[in-house]
């Protein structure tokens, strides 16, 4: 018996089935990195081929797709992935977090609370959180298998010894369901708390490294830390200059060649949504000059 050959969302059905199997296994073992036979995609690895393959494998004709890159829907990367799926799957796309059923993301978790009928797909460059200190894959696998995670704390120890505090700001390691230690991909640690107990399914795809992992809905995710140096999500102590949000993750944007800067929401949809609701800038006079 042969499967019908058609190319909804680019990948053939055989490949999608293989990827779905990896996804199911990943969901069954939260935080565990499942190897899969990553395919060549018509884009370079740095463009999130892992995330693209996961999205391709779960996308159905009824889905509404949103693609974000560092919080923004309109970077080249986000636009081209969105176009890719418009062309190959004909699905509807959106920039509105609340309308999307599948959200593929690089480096951010949306600010808006996600719901149980959404799936968040992360693009992952390096899936192995232990690689920093233990380059041997046979050894890191064994460490995961036996829950030998002392090494993760050595990494945090080094951070504190060097900087006086845990300086890791992105890809901050987490433990999923009190078992596997996982790299949440290079999201800011500000986003880490959103991973925990999230109603949406979270899938992680690493194309070059051929790994898929998952956080099932409503799973407890904790950020590693020390008793005397507890985990702290970080955001600039400022409000968005466009929508006055004080709870969103902020990007620092250089506004002219005098070095003037301003803080704006990194999640552009969140910012627009707030402005549409009538939230506006606080005062134009609060721009601070750059130091030096």
């Amino acid at each position: 018996m042969t499967a019908p050959v058609y190319n909804f969302a680019y990948l053939d059905e055989q490949t999608k089935r293989m990827i779905r199997r990896a996804i199911l296994k990943a969901i069954a073992i939260p935080g565990y990195q499942v190897p899969f036979a990553s395919r060549e995609m018509p884009m370079p690895y740095g463009w999130g081929t892992g995330g693209v393959q996961v999205t391709a494998a779960i996308l159905g004709p009824q889905d509404v797709l949103k693609v974000i890159d560092q919080g923004s829907d309109d970077t080249t990367n986000a636009v081209s992935i969105r176009k890719f799926f418009t062309r190959t799957a004909g699905v509807r796309t959106t920039t509105a977090t609340l309308e999307a059923t599948v959200i593929q993301t690089r480096h951010r978790v949306p600010e808006a609370a996600l719901s149980a009928d959404q799936v968040l797909v992360y693009q992952v460059p390096i899936p192995e959180p232990l690689r920093f200190l233990e380059p041997r894959e046979t050894e890191t696998r064994r460490m995961h298998a036996l829950s030998e995670y002392g090494l993760m704390h050595v990494k945090l120890y080094e951070d504190i010894a060097r900087h006086g505090h845990i300086a890791t700001a992105y890809a901050y390691p987490v433990q999923v369901a009190s078992r596997y230690v996982m790299d949440p991909s290079p999201i800011p640690k500000f986003d880490n708390p959103k991973l925990s107990n999230c109603p949406a399914l979270q899938l992680f795809g690493a194309g070059r490294e051929k790994r898929i992992y998952a956080i099932p809905p409503y799973t407890r995710v904790t950020s590693l830390d020390f008793d005397d140096h507890p985990f702290e999500p970080y955001r600039h102590d400022a409000s968005c200059e466009l929508c006055a949000a004080t709870d969103s993750y902020l990007d620092e944007v250089i506004t002219d060649d005098q070095g003037n800067r301003m803080f704006v929401c990194s999640d552009t949809d969140y910012c627009e949504h707030r402005r549409a609701l009538g939230h506006g800038p606080i005062a134009a006079t609060q721009k601070e000059p750059a130091d030096g």
Partner: peptide
């Protein structure tokens, strides 16, 4: 410190 952390010490 590695061995201490490996056996679960969590106070820097």
């Amino acid at each position: 410190g590695e061995r201490l952390m490996a056996v679960g010490q969590r106070h820097y």
